[in-house]
Design a protein around this nucleic acid. Structure first.
Lengths: 207, 207
DNA sequence: TAGATTGTTAATCGATTAACAATC
DNA sequence: TAGATTGTTAATCGATTAACAATC
C-alpha cells in the first residue's frame, strides 16, 4: 500500500528535480499527488528519517532512498515472453530504461516470430528461456501472451527459475508463493474508468 | 476499492461460465482469487442480494449485475490519443472488445502518422478530436503519448468534452474534478514487482 | 430433514488524519 | 529570533474478518 505510493513519489520527485528544485515539502508533494501532507510524512517516516525540519526533503537524497527501498538502484534484466502486438510495443517502450529495467531477451513459441529482430533483440524459442535466464541473471518476466496461453507460459517461466511475473493476460495466475506477480489488465482499468465517469454522471443527475 | 474487485470477479465469473459451471459459491470464488469468502459476500451484498442461500451465485446473473454496476452493459466508444508504438498495440488489443469498449477513432499530431491506417482506423489530427467526440458520442480517451506531450494532450481531451482519461504517460495529470482518470504506469508496476521479489529474498536471507 | 451457503452483525484490524513538540 | 516544516503520537476512520441466524 505504502509501496505503491513510493513509486509515485519517486516519479514526481524526478520531475521536481528536473525543474531544478532541490528540496520539496511534504505539503507541496502531497498537493501535486492529491494526498495529504500527513500521509506523505508518515510514508517516509516508515522507512527512516529522510527530511529536514524547517526545510523539507532534498529531492536527490529522497530519490536515492526510495530507489534503494524499491531495489531499483541497480538495473534489473527482464525477459519478455510473447512477442505479438503488445509485446513488441513493450520492447519499444522507453519508460523502463529510466527506472532501472532493461529487457534483455525476448521469447515466443510461434515459428513465424522466432529469429525475428525487434529493437535489437532476436526472438528466441521458449525452450531457451531457462538457459538464458540463468546466463543473464534474469529474475523478472513480462508476460504478454494471449489469455489462452498464459497459464502454460507462466509455468515455463517459473520452471526457468524466474521469481517475478508482470502479467498482461486477463487471467489469475496460480503461482507458488515464492514467485511474485503483478497483474496489468487493461480492460479492467477501462472498466474502472467507465464506472468513475458513470458515478459522476449519476451524482450530477441526482442533484 | 470494492469496484476494483468487482472487475476481478467479473473476469473470473466469465471463465467459470465458460467452463460450463452455472453457479459458484463465495468460498470457491474467493479461493480462485486469493480472497476470503466473507469479503466476496460483503462486496456483493453492498450492491444488493445477488445470491441464493444453500446454492451460491448464478454466474450469468451475477455477470449481468456486475456489468450493470460497472456500466459495461453497453459498448463505450473510445478515442485513442497517440498512435506511436504503444498506441498501435492498444488498437490491436482484442481484450477491450469483449468487455464493452470499442476504439472508434485514433488521433495524433505527427504529420507522418496522420492519414495512416491501423486496424481499420484512419489516424486523424488532434484538431478534429472535438468534432469526432461529439458526433460519435465518445466519453473515454486512451492517452498514449510521450510524457512530454501528455499534459497538453490532456487539456485538448478535456476541451473536447471527454469525461474519462486512461493515462499511460508517467505524469500526474491535473484535471478538473468533473473528469475522471486512471493511470497506468508500466514502470511503476515493474517497480512494485521488483520490490516484492526483493522483499521475499530479504525474508529468506533473514531465516 | 440435513447440508450447504447466503446476508448481516459485531469485533478486529490497519490505514489515514489531525495536532503538536522538536528541529532547523 | 521568527517562520517553516519535520517526525510522531493519539484519535478517527474505513475496511476486513469471523460468526451465525435465516434460507434454500
Amino acid at each position: 500500500m505504502v509501496i505503491g505510493r513510493l513509486s509515485l513519489y519517486l516519479r514526481e520527485l524526478q520531475l521536481v528535480l528536473g525543474a531544478n528544485k532541490d528540496t520539496i515539502s511534504s505539503s507541496t508533494l502531497a498537493r501535486r499527488l492529491g494526498l495529504t501532507a500527513s500521509q506523505v510524512r508518515k510514508d517516509f517516516a516508515y522507512f527512516g528519517q529522510f527530511g529536514y525540519p524547517g526545510v523539507g526533503y532534498r529531492c536527490d537524497e529522497l530519490i536515492q532512498k526510495i530507489r534503494s527501498i524499491l531495489g531499483t538502484e541497480r538495473v534489473w534484466p527482464v525477459a519478455l515472453i510473447g512477442c505479438g502486438n503488445l509485446g513488441q510495443a513493450l520492447l519499444g517502450y522507453r519508460g523502463f530504461g529510466n527506472q532501472g529495467f532493461s529487457v534483455v531477451a525476448a521469447f515466443d513459441k510461434q515459428p513465424g516470430l522466432i529469429g525475428k529482430n525487434f529493437e535489437g533483440l532476436t526472438v528466441q524459442h521458449m525452450d531457451e528461456l531457462g538457459d538464458t535466464a540463468k546466463s543473464r541473471n534474469i529474475e523478472l518476466a513480462i508476460l504478454a501472451v494471449p489469455a489462452s496461453a498464459a497459464t502454460e507460459a507462466a509455468q515455463e517461466i517459473v520452471a526457468a527459475g524466474i521469481s517475478g511475473i508482470m502479467n498482461f493476460a486477463p487471467v489469475t495466475l496460480k503461482l507458488p508463493p515464492s514467485v511474485s506477480k503483478v497483474g496489468v489488465d487493461l480492460a479492467i482499468e477501462l472498466e474502472q474508468l467507465a464506472f468513475s465517469v458513470l458515478a459522476k454522471q449519476r451524482t450530477k443527475d441526482r442533484l
